[in-house]
Write a protein that binds this DNA or RNA. Structure first.
Lengths: 336, 336
DNA sequence: CTGAAAGCGCTAACAA
DNA sequence: TTGTTAGCGCTTTCAG
């Protein structure tokens, strides 16, 4: 027997208030059918005894626990941390605790994490997928929704329109007069990456249609700093003649990598080179110069995801899930 | 009645294997007292039926859930995210799920979060305190340990020696020949801040004892970027005569703020000014120039904390919990 | 070594 | 409107 420190149960409350456990339970459930005098007495006893409901017992009884699973690639990634923060906030508003589990971009591990959380009968699970395909089977009874990254299997997902977001970046650099543009895309095998690339290139091509000066070159890499550095080095070095005047990246990390490389090489941002990122991670507003970027509607994503968990078939209108252009000082008019 | 999809229970397994539930339970508990033939039969049935133990029932029975609470100020802070990652990793190794809750540096909220997690009968709670005093009462039965920041109430805490860490920074700038030094401290009312300040100033004073050129000026601020910028502006502007050659900060954020301000003012780092941070957040290795800083032993902190939760009175030797100096390119020899 | 049975704390169906 | 009671699924005595 585990040494069980005398803990106040519903039975103790019942005894103290001179009612049955059923009545106490009803009071707890805010079941209106309990008459004033009893209600008051019970509440007083609860207060007096310092009664706390046993969550495990409830979970067992209801076959459902007030927890929300959150599975994401890596909490150390500032964007994911931001998402986690908003989700926790929203979950708390609904009385849900958040269980955090990381997949470290491992398909197998992601599946294991999801299954492990499933074993706890959570109210639902939100997952930021590590890849484009779902790594786990969808249970019948527990809502799982993906967020941020779309997955190819058609499935309940919450995310901002990436193409539209990327198109915003196209509009911006076009308006600033840039025509010789480099786009740093993410890995070819991720959907987000392709969507952003598609959204950007389609829009910029449309805008620049017929302009003989227009030149777009697309490079692929990971979403990280190194990729940004590498591409920037490639396009900026030994290239002063036809050097691009704008680099648009598929992630802030890439953009910041490019920023850094430009500085190392001696190309001045934004006078000689404008740079645009994507995501608006906290760092974007800290680097020098501050990064112009596309902000994802993280709070709205989080709220929507949690709402779908709690009320899976609500028809309530979704929040505005569009990206926004955040203009800062890493972009300016194209040099003559 | 909640629609309970037919879920396999221990009873089903017992029936299928033609044994009693007790036996199945013993098998589950790896209780060696079950004989081979039964053991095999039971395991086969478990496999066949796809049985998964009901965690809520276990938690109810044992009055203890295999979860670890983690309460921290803000997961968005890269240092805390790092800590969270390591804790989750270590918790997983022990079969513990992690419940994440944020205090947002609010004493009251921190207390509520801790109490809310306590209601779930967790195996333990790790908290990164938002202030120097404990915001909650310590329960008898559930271990709560604080990590990273010491709290004034004497209490089970896991943290690196901040004074020693800060002294490392002193050694470093001294060896590089810096004598006109600015120290950016954190808020006066936090213990860490005072410890780091104390560790740095005591050591540097000792090293420079009797040196007529020695000059140390200490400024206080928050641990954030702005504080770093502000102090840097103050000491670098209109001050070219006796300008400091080194700035040592109590946090990487402050150091990075100072870095940024130095660049704005036109003071070249590290040639004209060396800068040292504290914590080694991921960003420290990304800024230009990369930041020399004091690294906290995050992984060891996490492991130690989890170990203390799982085995509160283990006398096993603690891991090495000392800080390390990470020399990068934001520091160099003092200018002549 | 194994089975039978009590009971963890709670909710909800059924009675009164 | 309130009381009584049967389990939810599991572990752990206690018998055998």
């Amino acid at each position: 027997m585990v040494d069980r420190i005398k803990t106040v149960t519903i039975k103790d409350v019942a005894k103290h208030a001179n009612v049955s456990v059923g009545t106490v339970s009803r009071v707890l459930a805010k079941n209106a059918t309990v008459k004033q005098p009893l209600l008051i007495r019970v509440n007083k006893s609860i207060e007096l005894l310092g009664y706390k409901p046993n969550l495990a017992a409830r979970a067992l009884r209801a076959n459902k626990d007030d927890v929300l699973g959150l599975v994401l690639p890596d909490i150390t990634n500032p964007f994911f941390a931001q998402v986690a923060k908003e989700i926790e906030l929203e979950a708390a508003r609904h009385g849900l605790a958040v269980i955090l589990a990381s997949s470290f971009d491992d398909h197998e591990k992601e599946a294991r994490q999801v299954r492990a959380i499933l074993d706890r009968s959570p109210t639902g699970i939100i997952v930021i997928p590590s890849t484009d395909s779902l790594s786990f089977e969808l249970p019948e009874t527990i809502p799982i929704i993906t967020i941020d990254r779309p997955v190819s299997n058609v499935h309940e997902g919450v995310f901002a329109d990436q193409e539209l977001g990327a198109a915003l970046a196209a509009d911006h650099v076009f308006e600033l007069g840039h025509r010789n543009i480099v786009y740093i895309a993410g890995p070819k095998d991720t959907i987000v990456s392709e969507q952003r690339k598609q959204g950007f290139s389609a829009r910029i091509k449309e805008l620049c249609k017929g302009d003989p000066a227009f030149k777009l070159s697309v490079h692929h890499g990971l979403f990280d700093y190194e990729a940004g550095e590498k591409v920037a080095r490639l396009v900026l070095e030994n290239n002063s003649g036809s050097r691009p005047t704008a680099i648009v990246a598929a992630s802030d990390q890439q953009a910041i990598g490019a920023l850094r490389e430009a500085r190392d090489i001696g190309v001045i941002v934004p006078t000689e080179l404008s740079i645009v990122g994507f995501d608006d991670i906290a760092l974007a507003n800290i680097v020098v110069p501050r990064l112009t970027t596309i902000r994802q509607p993280i709070e709205a994503l989080a709220k929507t995801a949690v709402k779908r968990i709690i009320d899976p078939n609500s028809n309530e209108a979704d929040l505005d899930l569009t990206c926004n252009l955040i203009v800062r000082t890493s972009t300016t008019k194209a040099p003559q």
